[in-house]
């Protein structure tokens, strides 16, 4: 008989509070997880545990899941040897009472290589409804026995960023600043146009002369000068 371990990991993953404010709603979210290790096209799901996100805005979550049994680890190893995929089914229940089923998968060898460490990412839409539950594992790929039979699960809740808007205000400020700077500069500088900008005009003039020399009309003239 195997002792049942309960592993709880708590993770707050709000990257920035500014982006968090895009979400108008707050609520809870419950995920029930099933997984399949069988190396066939039709998955056989067994229960894995559940995740409770108490506040979707803060992303605070509680993970409750059992450790893997040895037969399951063996199955996972066979799956990894055949380059198969570990499949996870997540049934999400939201505070509005909806029940949505998601399916996600990752290469089984990545799971073994990272010693059963995985990241479950829950993406919400603008109405705080889950749209994607996806699992990922950093890897590396391996078919060896994992160190532990306990999951190390991180839960990340993500929601859409606010779309960019044309930044007119800053641009107008910038123009204002430039205009002011120019006005201040103009008061000091009262030289003639040529005196001020000769260093731009001269290279441009040289450039024009050079380019006109290579143009076909001037080509004849250039040729005649060669003859001289």
């Amino acid at each position: 008989m195997y002792t049942i371990y309960i592993f709880i990991s708590l993770l707050v993953s709000v990257s920035s509070s500014a982006r968090g404010s895009e979400l108008d709603y707050d609520g809870w979210l419950q995920l029930r997880l099933w997984h399949a290790f069988n190396d066939e096209s039709e998955p056989i799901f067994v229960e894995r545990g559940n995740v409770t996100v108490s506040s979707v805005r803060s992303g605070a979550s509680v993970v409750g899941q059992n450790g893997l049994l040895q037969p399951h680890i063996n199955q996972l190893k066979t799956l990894a040897k055949h380059d198969g995929k570990y499949r996870l089914k997540a049934v999400a229940r939201t505070s509005s009472g909806n029940e949505i089923t998601f399916l996600t998968s990752l290469p089984a060898c990545n799971l073994l290589g990272s010693d059963l460490e995985d990241v479950i990412t829950i993406w919400l839409d603008s109405a705080a409804e889950p749209i994607v539950v996806s699992i990922s594992s950093p890897g590396p790929c391996s078919t060896e026995n994992p160190f532990t039979n306990m999951w190390t699960t991180n839960v990340i809740v993500k929601y859409p960023d606010g779309g960019p808007v044309p930044d007119t205000a800053t641009y107008i400020q910038k123009l204002e600043r430039e205009r002011e700077a120019r006005e201040r500069g103009e008061a000091k500088d009262n030289r003639s146009f040529l005196a001020r900008y000769w260093m731009y005009i001269v290279p441009a003039l040289i450039f024009v002369v050079l380019s006109s020399a290579t143009s076909p009309e001037a080509g004849g003239a250039g040729g005649s000068s060669q003859r001289q």
Binding site: L103, T104, S105, D125, S126, V132, K158, Y159, P160, G163
Partner: peptide, 28 residues
């Protein structure tokens, strides 16, 4: 009614099924 005139854009990896990025525009 509530979500009218919002535009959502999602970037999805079609192989792994992982969402890469999502963005939302309001009143467009």
């Amino acid at each position: 009614h509530t979500h009218k005139n919002t535009l959502n854009l999602y970037l999805l990896d079609a192989v792994s099924g992982a969402m890469i990025f999502s963005i939302m525009h309001k009143r467009v």
